[in-house]
Lab assay of single mutants.
Amino acid sequence: PEDEKKAKEALKRANGDEDKAKEILRKLGVDPDRAEELLRRLR
C-alpha cells in the first residue's frame, strides 16, 4: 500500500541505508515501528 511505496522510495533515497530510510519515513509521518517492519520486509 501507500506506506510500502514510501518505504521503497525512502530506501532508494537513502541509498539502501536503513537508518537513513527510517529517518525519512519518520519525517513522512510513518509510525517508527511500522517503518521498521516495512524496511525489514523489503530487505
Score class of each variant (00 low, 15 high):
Glu2Trp: 12
Ala21Ile: 03
Arg34Lys: 12
Ala21Phe: 05
Glu37Gln: 09
Gly29Arg: 03
Gly16Val: 02
Glu23Trp: 06
Ala35Asp: 01
Lys12Trp: 13
Lys6Gly: 05
Lys6Ile: 15
Glu37Gly: 05
Leu42Asp: 02
Glu18Lys: 10
Glu9Thr: 07
Glu23Gln: 08
Leu11His: 03
Lys6Arg: 13
Lys6Thr: 11
Ala7Phe: 05
Asp19Val: 14
Glu9Asn: 07
Leu28His: 06
Ala35Trp: 07
Ala7Lys: 01
Leu25Asn: 00
Lys20Trp: 09
Asp31Asn: 10
Gly29Met: 03
Asp31Arg: 08
Ala21Ser: 02
Glu4Phe: 15
Ala10Leu: 02
Leu25His: 00
Lys8Arg: 15
Lys22Phe: 12
Leu39Val: 07
Asp33Ala: 14
Arg26Gly: 09
Pro32Ala: 12
Lys6Gln: 14
Asp31Met: 09
Gly29Thr: 01
Lys8His: 09
Arg41Ile: 11
Glu18Gly: 06
Asp19Glu: 14
Lys12Tyr: 12
Gly29Ser: 03
Lys12Phe: 12
Asp3Val: 07
Leu38Glu: 02
Lys20His: 07
Glu23Phe: 04
Lys27Met: 14
Gly16Glu: 02
Asp17Met: 04
Val30Asp: 00
Val30Arg: 01
Arg41Val: 09
Lys8Leu: 14
Ala21Pro: 00
Ala21Cys: 02
Ile24Met: 08
Asp33Phe: 11
Leu42His: 04
Val30Ala: 02
Ala14Glu: 02
Lys22Val: 08
Asp17Tyr: 03
Lys12Gln: 13
Ala35Gln: 03
Arg34Glu: 08
Arg26Met: 15
Asp3Thr: 05
Asn15Tyr: 08
Leu11Asn: 02
Glu2Gln: 09
Ala14Gly: 03
Ala35Val: 11
Arg26Phe: 13
Glu23Ser: 06
Glu4Gln: 08
Asp19Thr: 13
Glu36Gln: 07
Ala35Lys: 00
Lys22Ala: 09
Val30Tyr: 15
Glu36Ala: 11
Lys27Val: 11
Asp17Val: 05
Arg41Gly: 12
Arg13Thr: 12
Asp3Tyr: 08
Pro1His: 14
Glu37Phe: 06
Asp33Leu: 13
Asp19Ser: 12
Leu42Ser: 03
Leu11Ser: 02
Lys27Arg: 13
Asp33Glu: 13
Glu36Ser: 08
Ala35Pro: 00
Glu4Lys: 06
Arg40Glu: 11
Lys6Phe: 13
Ala35Ser: 05
Asn15Pro: 02
Glu9Ala: 11
Glu9Lys: 08
Lys8Ser: 09
Glu36Pro: 01
Arg26Pro: 01
Arg26Leu: 15
Pro32Gln: 08
Asn15Leu: 09
Leu39Trp: 02
Asp17Trp: 04
Ala35Leu: 07
Pro32Thr: 09
Ala10Arg: 00
Asp31Tyr: 05
Asp33Arg: 12
Leu28Pro: 00
Pro32Lys: 11
Arg40Ala: 12
Leu11Glu: 01
Pro1Gly: 14
Lys12Val: 10
Lys20Arg: 10
Gly29Gln: 03
Arg43Thr: 07
Asp3Gln: 06
Lys20Ile: 14
Ala14Gln: 02
Ala35His: 04
Leu25Phe: 01
Leu25Gly: 00
Leu25Glu: 00
Pro1Leu: 15
Ala21Thr: 03
Pro1Lys: 13
Leu39Ile: 14
Leu38Gly: 00
Arg40Lys: 12
Arg26Thr: 14
Gly16Trp: 09
Ala21Leu: 04
Lys22Ile: 11
Asn15Thr: 03
Leu25Ile: 02
Glu23His: 06
Ile24Thr: 04
Arg43Leu: 14
Glu36Gly: 06
Gly29Asp: 03
Asp19Asn: 13
Lys6Tyr: 13
Arg43Phe: 08
Gly29Pro: 00
Ala10Ser: 04
Pro32Gly: 12
Asp31Trp: 05
Arg41Asp: 10
Ala35Cys: 04
Leu11Arg: 02
Lys20Asn: 05
Arg41Pro: 05
Glu36Tyr: 05
Lys5Thr: 11
Val30Lys: 01
Glu4Gly: 05
Ala7Val: 12
Gly16Met: 05
Arg26Gln: 14
Ala10Asn: 01
Asp3Leu: 14
Glu18Pro: 11
Leu28Met: 14
Lys5Trp: 15
Glu9Trp: 15
Lys27Trp: 11
Gly16Cys: 06
Glu37Trp: 06
Leu39Tyr: 03
Lys6Ser: 09
Lys20Gly: 06
Asp33Thr: 11
Leu39Lys: 00
Lys6Val: 14
Glu18Leu: 14
Glu9Val: 08
Glu9Gly: 05
Ala10Pro: 01
Glu36Thr: 08
Gly29Lys: 03
Lys8Phe: 12
Glu9Phe: 11
Leu38Lys: 00
Arg43Trp: 07
Glu9Ile: 11
Glu18Ile: 15
Leu38Trp: 05
Lys5Ala: 14
Arg43Asn: 08
Leu28Thr: 04
Gly29Phe: 03
Arg34Gln: 09
Lys8Thr: 07
Pro1Tyr: 14
Lys27Ser: 14
Lys27Tyr: 10
Val30Trp: 15
Ile24Cys: 03
Ala7Tyr: 04
Glu4Cys: 06
Asp3Gly: 06
Leu38His: 02
Lys27His: 12
Lys6Asn: 09
Lys12Glu: 12
Ala10Phe: 02
Arg13Ala: 15
Asn15Phe: 09
Lys12Ala: 12
Leu38Ala: 05
Asp33Lys: 13
Leu11Gly: 00
Leu42Tyr: 06
Lys8Ile: 15
Arg41Trp: 13
Leu11Met: 09
Pro1Arg: 13
Lys22Trp: 07
Leu25Thr: 00
Glu36Asp: 13
Glu37Ile: 08
Lys8Trp: 14
Arg26Glu: 12
Lys20Val: 14
Ala14Lys: 01
Glu36Lys: 07
Arg26Val: 15
Glu36Val: 08
Val30Gln: 02
Glu2His: 09
Lys8Glu: 09
Ala7Glu: 01
Asp17Ser: 06
Ile24Ala: 06
Ile24Asp: 04
Ala21Met: 04
Asp17Cys: 04
Lys27Glu: 15
Ile24Gly: 02
Arg41Ser: 12
Lys8Val: 13
Asp31Ser: 13
Asp33Ser: 11
Lys5Ile: 14
Lys6Asp: 07
